[in-house]
């Protein structure tokens, strides 16, 4: 179980997180809610180990592998779809995930020859191919059509059977969350 205790974070004079506390379930979808600029992405970054909190602590995350779908695709510009998705796993695993997201015929394409939706799917395939114990999703629907939203929802639900999936998604929920973390940002 992952527990957040009084997580605070400021950037200069601006305090973004003002003592976030929550106990996350062992598995299942967790919605991260809050207005624009309330610090949702900052909290995801802290969970991913990319930022350190000014104060507070996170328990139960040590040694866990965190997979992350960033708000941006963050693909290597000179690498193929297969190299991008397989950056941290076997090529066969990456290939399977790319095929699952409908990119089986675009394995050797590079990001600048792909549409926004295709690049998003490569980023999703990379995160799922990596696997991990915790999945973080920041605006994962960006650029996806209805068919791929359905694939993403199905795969996220499958992941959530074994571990927590923490997602930020304006508008519709990815899945019915079993837990919510609300950040007011005030």
């Amino acid at each position: 179980m992952i527990e957040l205790r009084g997580i605070k974070k400021s950037f200069g004079e601006q305090q973004v997180l003002r003592g976030v506390s929550a106990v996350l379930p062992e598995k299942g979808p967790v919605a991260l809610r809050g207005g624009s600029g309330s610090g949702k992405t900052t909290l995801l970054r802290i969970l991913a180990g990319l930022e350190s909190a000014d104060s507070g602590e996170i328990l139960g995350l040590d040694g866990k592998r965190v997979s992350y779908v960033f708000q941006e695709d963050r693909l290597l510009p000179r690498a193929t779809a297969l190299e991008n998705a397989g950056i941290a796993c076997e090529k066969s695993t990456a290939r399977q995930w790319l095929e699952r997201f409908g990119l089986g015929d675009s394995l050797n394409k590079k990001p600048d020859t792909m549409s926004g939706g295709m690049r998003r799917r490569v980023a999703l395939a990379r995160a799922f191919a990596f696997g991990g114990d915790v999945l973080l999703l920041d605006e994962p629907f960006n650029g996806l059509d209805a068919d791929n939203i359905a694939v993403l929802t199905k795969e996220t639900a499958r992941f959530a059977q074994n571990g927590p999936v923490i997602f930020v998604n304006h508008g519709n929920d990815l899945l019915a969350p079993v837990h919510e973390i609300v950040i007011d940002g005030k």
Binding site: L50, R74, I87, A88, R126
Partner: peptide, 24 residues
């Protein structure tokens, strides 16, 4: 920085980071 962070999150091996991220 965004790509370095990506490599950090996905624990990309140093040799692969060198070949795919830094060399190009």
């Amino acid at each position: 920085r965004e790509l370095r962070e990506m490599a950090q999150v996905f624990r990309v091996k140093p040799g692969r980071q060198l070949r795919l991220l830094y060399l190009p």
